[in-house]
Amino acid sequence: MYGTIYEFETLPTSGEHDGRRKSASLARSAQRGRAVPLVGIIRNPRSHRNKGHAPEMADCSNILTETPRTRTDLYGVLESFARRGIDYLVVDGGDGTVRDVLTCGADIFGEEWPTFIVLPKGKTNALAIDLGLPNQWSLAEALAAAHKGNKLTRRPLRISSREDSNGCIQGFILGTGAFALATEAGQEAHRRGAFNSFAVGLTVLWGIIQTLFGRAGNPWRSCTPTRLVNRHTGRDLPYQGPGRSDERFMAVATTFERFPLGARPFGSDVAPGMKLGVIDWPVRWVIALLPAVLFGFWGKFLERRGVHRFCASAVDLELDGSFILDGEAFPGGDYVLEEGPQLTFVVP
């Protein structure tokens, strides 16, 4: 949206808007007899491919287009959409806009969200790649696909504080350690005119070069104090690196099943749900193999050198450093990382 539209520590408390949830539930019940679908659009005019372009189908009476500028505005718009019982919630922007909508709407919609339509107008659009959306997908094409019943389901990641479970943030790709540096490099790639999968490829290549050839003191070769605990077993996730067991080079969590550039970091048969990729320590020959690992190469010898792939529905994350969620940095702390509500997305 227009800069950071919310702060993690000031998200609304669960239960604070119970009355609003009830009103939204009644509105959703009333929508079933509607002949023409009611469509609510959250449009980010600052998204890469929205700049200088007018919103689509804005003159249609069943299309409600809003451009909230602040977190408070976005919350109010989503509350209004819920009360009116919209059939489709359109996010006209990039991955960050999707994250903002999922976060600000968490207490309004709970586990019962309207069907999503994503118009990929951002710089990377990783969610669009996972869903198989074309880069130039229009609202008219999306509504036609919705009429045909073309849909997929996904669960976002939900991150909440272990000390105060009232607030949460929701998105699709979380990263720590070197992932944060890679995000900064990706922003530089955007400034130089690289977008989507090409920008991802450049970022990965730059990170590998820095980690391979960096000297002592290079931030690309540092680790971040990190503890990962499976909430169901109470056990720490395995550590095999040569460094300290309470530090990790990088951790990435996602619920995606498809990735930019056709990458297969979790293998060719990707299971639904939350997945974590972790590198304990930047062993140089392991980093040199990272491109192959990203495209499906795997072996037990990698685990013995501190490269891990995990599947878990909930993890305690203790982090002394910032983490990235869909392109935005959030402060370190003690968090619960888990799967969020099941969402339905319209696809071609």
Score class of each variant (00 low, 15 high):
332 G>D: 03
22 K>E: 14
330 F>E: 00
62 N>S: 02
54 A>H: 03
271 A>H: 05
126 A>L: 01
24 A>R: 07
339 E>D: 05
158 R>A: 07
261 L>Y: 04
104 C>F: 00
14 S>T: 13
272 P>A: 12
174 L>V: 06
125 N>S: 04
282 P>F: 00
265 P>F: 12
103 T>P: 00
127 L>T: 02
169 I>S: 02
285 W>G: 01
126 A>Y: 00
46 R>D: 14
98 V>D: 00
238 P>D: 02
8 F>I: 11
200 V>S: 02
152 L>F: 01
151 K>N: 11
169 I>D: 08
296 G>W: 05
296 G>Y: 03
338 E>I: 09
201 G>R: 06
258 R>P: 06
268 S>C: 10
91 V>S: 06
184 E>D: 15
327 G>F: 07
70 T>W: 09
8 F>T: 02
198 F>V: 13
222 S>W: 06
89 L>S: 03
72 T>V: 15
232 H>C: 13
26 L>Y: 04
305 R>W: 11
182 A>I: 00
317 L>H: 10
143 L>S: 05
253 A>C: 09
46 R>I: 15
241 G>C: 06
346 V>H: 11
14 S>P: 10
70 T>H: 09
328 E>T: 12
251 A>V: 11
167 G>T: 03
139 L>I: 06
152 L>Q: 12
160 S>E: 14
117 I>P: 04
198 F>R: 01
165 S>C: 15
136 Q>H: 15
219 P>E: 09
173 I>Q: 10
298 W>Y: 14
277 G>N: 13
46 R>F: 06
195 F>P: 02
316 D>H: 11
193 G>L: 11
25 S>Y: 08
4 T>G: 14
68 P>R: 06
48 H>M: 08
66 E>T: 11
216 A>D: 15
326 D>H: 02
173 I>R: 04
190 H>Y: 04
14 S>C: 08
116 F>N: 00
67 T>A: 15
186 G>L: 13
225 P>S: 02
135 N>W: 04
241 G>T: 07
115 T>N: 13
64 L>S: 09
235 R>F: 01
8 F>Y: 11
81 F>H: 02
